[in-house]
């Protein structure tokens, strides 16, 4: 497995060099919660415009990994470079500038219950820019809702929306800030197959329209197949395997193959 990982790292480096700018780079990244060593030694690079899916059993630290990227969790050791800058060494303003370029779609949607759909979208916009006029705000909100097919839900509250609509609203709220990196935390969990496919297509549309670089944490193989350019499987806190869907589906390791069966 260790040999495989080294091969994978070399392959990954060659691939990313081919693809162009590296947007996210992790070097020997570690994170523990007490005695629970969740991320032991994560090494990976993600290139601009790439869709990377991360698979792994529950509790292997997939969500922790993307929460480290967005700054919700601090790393213990190693390097995390975003747009070439080590975020653990950045001070307040520069760190905020980097974080502004990252969008995060939460597993639950994390919609503000006390606000309407419009207010949910208006809130991050107002916080990031006070100079926007009411007309500009309205136009951005309508555009975002149109992108995710929720034009008619503008005056509804989150409690009036279905699971799929909530995910789409969460996506709209993230996209309204025009992030360059999108992090999806289990975007299709709890949805029926048709809605899951809609969300997966939406992820692809977002990539095409906004040229985003994405990391998708998922257990949904259909979503992975549809959206991922590259897949990483996390096992015991390290990158256990890496490759395209077709490569990993035919992996010699039965444990890796079991994800795709």
């Amino acid at each position: 497995m260790q040999e495989n990982t080294t091969d994978i790292e070399t392959k990954s480096k060659t691939d990313s060099e081919k693809k162009g700018d590296v947007v996210i780079e992790m070097q020997h990244l570690k994170k523990s919660f007490g005695n629970n060593h969740v991320l032991r030694d994560i090494n990976l690079t993600i290139s601009k415009g790439e869709n990377l899916a991360i698979l792994g059993q529950s509790g292997t630290g997939k969500s922790v990994l993307i929460k480290c990227i967005v700054g919700l969790i601090d790393i213990d050791d190693g390097k995390l470079l975003i747009f070439g800058q080590d975020i653990s060494e950045l001070k307040n303003k520069k760190l905020v500038e980097i974080q502004k370029k990252i969008g995060f779609l939460f597993q639950s949607g994390a919609l503000y219950d006390s606000m309407t759909v419009r207010e949910n979208l208006e809130f991050p916009l107002r916080k990031q820019s006070n100079s926007l006029s009411k007309e500009e705000l309205d136009s951005l909100i309508k555009e975002s809702l149109h992108d995710v097919g929720l034009d008619k839900a503008i005056d509804k509250t989150p409690s009036e929306l279905s699971g799929g609509m909530r995910k789409r609203l969460g996506l709209a709220r993230t996209l309204i800030l025009k992030p360059e990196i999108m992090l999806y935390d289990e975007p299709t969990t709890g949805l029926d197959p048709i809605t899951s496919k809609e969300i997966s297509n939406l992820i692809l549309e977002v990539q095409r329209k906004y040229h985003t670089t994405s990391i998708i944490i998922t257990h949904d193989i259909e979503c992975t197949k549809l959206t991922a350019d590259r897949i990483i499987v996390i096992k015991s806190g390290i990158c256990g395997a890496e490759g395209t869907f077709d490569e990993l589906e035919k992996s010699a390791d039965p444990w890796i193959r079991s994800f795709f069966e």
């Binding site: 967005v70 502004k100 995060f104 919609l111 503000y112 916080k127 990031q128």
Partner: peptide
């Protein structure tokens, strides 16, 4: 929701 606020600056 608190995490979402933090993420949206």
């Amino acid at each position: 929701q608190i995490d979402a606020m933090q993420v949206s600056d």
